[in-house]
């Protein structure tokens, strides 16, 4: 009774991930078809998929190290084949950790682990940190950011304990910079890349929030665009343009389902030109989705 994933965004449900439902909803918000893909289904079903997303959470309980067990899962062989032939692949938070641990990112030497997502380094605190941050869209070949303007400031939440992009290979770092693989950097609400906490919320080198492969079809992204897909999700106290927009929409429920700042990560799959598509309205919510799936 396997579902077909042809033409759909497949959201991989490793055991322990916990953002899979809202990630499906976010992909659907731009009109894409999206479905959950349980990790132990036949990987061959992904062959005709439009794109694959590894959502956030704690795959395999972060055993050994975040992302490392999922990176060894047999499904990754299929993802490697798809990604190396241009299929769009996005890893969000724990998904980004999986992509780094599997050597897809930065991918200069495919499947060689060249980067790490190390424990956050923050002023006055350590461990897990959840907050809204701002990202600056850098010039890059990334397929997942193609509908943002260059240097556009994108507010999204982060929520992680190990999100600090690091490497001791300075030559490699220079190379990925040169290739334009640093797709997104943490910045202030006005777009200034300040290395200090909390602008850089985890101490990442170069304020890296997202790294793509050289070709641009694979993106490892620590922040959560699926939590910033609707305007209602934006805090009204947030500094900058999006906070003002949310504040101005107070009392106007018809605006709440409008586009949020993170929606265009998914819209980029549809259009490289930057025009955000009108949302289909939200399909969101665990119970609603679950019910829907049950009925189908």
């Amino acid at each position: 009774m396997s579902k077909s994933f042809a033409g759909k965004v497949a959201v991989i449900q490793f055991p322990g991930v916990n953002c899979e439902y809202e990630t499906v909803a976010a992909a659907r918000s731009v009109g894409l078809e999206a479905e959950l893909f349980r990790w132990n289904l036949d990987p061959g079903l992904l062959e005709e998929s439009l794109a694959v997303v590894l959502p956030g959470g704690f795959s395999y309980q972060d055993r050994i190290r975040a992302g490392v067990v999922a990176a060894k899962d047999h499904i990754m062989d299929k993802l490697s084949q798809l990604a190396s032939t241009g299929r769009p692949l996005l890893g969000i938070c724990n998904g980004a950790q999986v992509l780094v641990e599997s050597g897809f990112i930065p991918g200069l030497h495919w499947e060689r682990v060249d980067l790490a997502l190390a424990p956050n380094v923050m002023a006055d605190r350590e461990g897990y940190y959840c907050n809204w941050v701002h990202l600056r869209n850098e010039r890059s070949p990334c397929a997942w950011t193609s509908s943002f303007r260059e240097e556009e400031v994108i507010p999204v939440p982060i929520a992680h304990a190990e999100g600090r992009f690091v490497t001791d290979d300075t030559g490699m770092l220079e190379q990925i910079k040169k290739n334009g693989q640093i797709a997104l950097r943490y910045c202030t609400s006005s777009g200034l890349v300040d290395p200090a906490f909390p602008v850089n919320p985890n101490g990442s080198m170069e304020n890296i929030a997202g790294v793509c492969n050289r070709e641009g079809n694979v993106l490892a992204l620590m922040p959560h665009p699926e939590r910033a897909t609707w305007l209602r999700q934006v805090p009204e106290d947030l500094e900058g343009e999006w906070g003002r927009k949310r504040k101005a929409a107070a009392g106007r429920n018809d605006r709440m389902e409008d586009e949020g700042p993170g929606r265009r990560f998914f819209a980029s799959l549809l259009s490289g030109k930057g025009a955000a598509l009108p949302g289909k309205g939200s399909a969101g919510g665990i119970s609603l989705l679950a019910e829907k799936e049950g009925r189908e």
């Binding site: 916990n18 953002c19 439902y21 809202e22 909803a25 976010a26 956030g56 897990y128 959840c130 939440p157 929520a159 959560h224 699926e226 939590r227 897909t229 609707w230 209602r232 999700q233 805090p235 106290d237 709440m256 389902e257 309205g281 939200s282 399909a283 969101g284 919510g285 665990i286 609603l288």
Partner: peptide, 25 residues
């Protein structure tokens, strides 16, 4: 984590009560 599930409207500390939009749309 105040953001997971994507329903947050007012988060801890932002107001006297936490507010969620339980039924998107």
């Amino acid at each position: 984590d105040s953001e997971v599930q994507g329903r947050a409207v007012l988060r801890p500390g932002e107001a006297d009560a936490g507010v969620v939009a339980p039924l998107p749309g």
